[in-house]
């Protein structure tokens, strides 16, 4: 049977050669896939908030900035080369139409913006994206092929 590795909220998993990394039902959170095709090394990160800020929160994978940095550090240790990395993102939905708009109302949008900003600052380009709107997404990274799939309720699965 094919190896399936599930990535929780505020979590990140790395695997190589084969298997599927999967993170379920991203709402306002963002799933970020990293893939080095040369050595078939993949990582899937599930962040829930845009910035670590001043806090001394030990859970680095909770935030876009610290989560991406830590994932890149680990991928580097496994032999990934940054300029070969293919990154794709999904999630960042606005599940509820919240009044006021400010603050956490558009947390999904802020997450998406910050993920892109941090990736860009790291010199990484987003080569596939399915973000925004008002529905949850499950994201899968097939590490054997590097293909990324997104599925949502009532919609056919699509490849990013």
């Amino acid at each position: 049977m094919e190896k399936k590795i599930s990535v929780g909220i505020a979590d990140m998993k790395i695997t190589r050669q084969e298997g599927t990394l999967i993170t379920y039902a991203l709402g306002s959170c963002i799933g970020i896939s990293f893939y080095d095709p040369m050595i078939k090394l993949g990582a899937l990160l599930h962040i829930m908030l845009p910035e670590k800020g001043r806090g001394n929160d030990s859970n680095v994978f909770k935030f876009a900035d610290s989560g991406i940095q830590e994932t890149l550090r680990k991928l580097g240790a496994y032999g990934a080369v940054k300029k070969r990395l293919v990154c794709k993102i999904a999630g960042g939905a606005k599940m509820f139409e919240m009044k006021g708009g400010g603050g956490l109302g558009n947390i999904g949008e802020r997450n998406a913006q910050n993920v892109k900003r941090v990736l860009m600052a790291e010199g990484l380009r987003v080569s596939g994206e399915d973000t925004g709107a008002n529905y949850a997404r499950t994201m899968l990274l097939d590490v054997a092929t590097g293909k990324v799939y997104v599925r949502s309720a009532g919609k056919p699965e699509r490849m990013l």
Binding site: A25, G27, M48, A93, M95, Y135
Partner: peptide, 18 residues
Amino acid sequence: LAVNMLGGIMSVPIAMMG
């Protein structure tokens, strides 16, 4: 109101409280 995946819906309070 939202009708969607449980995980996506719960991401909202989790992000707010977390």
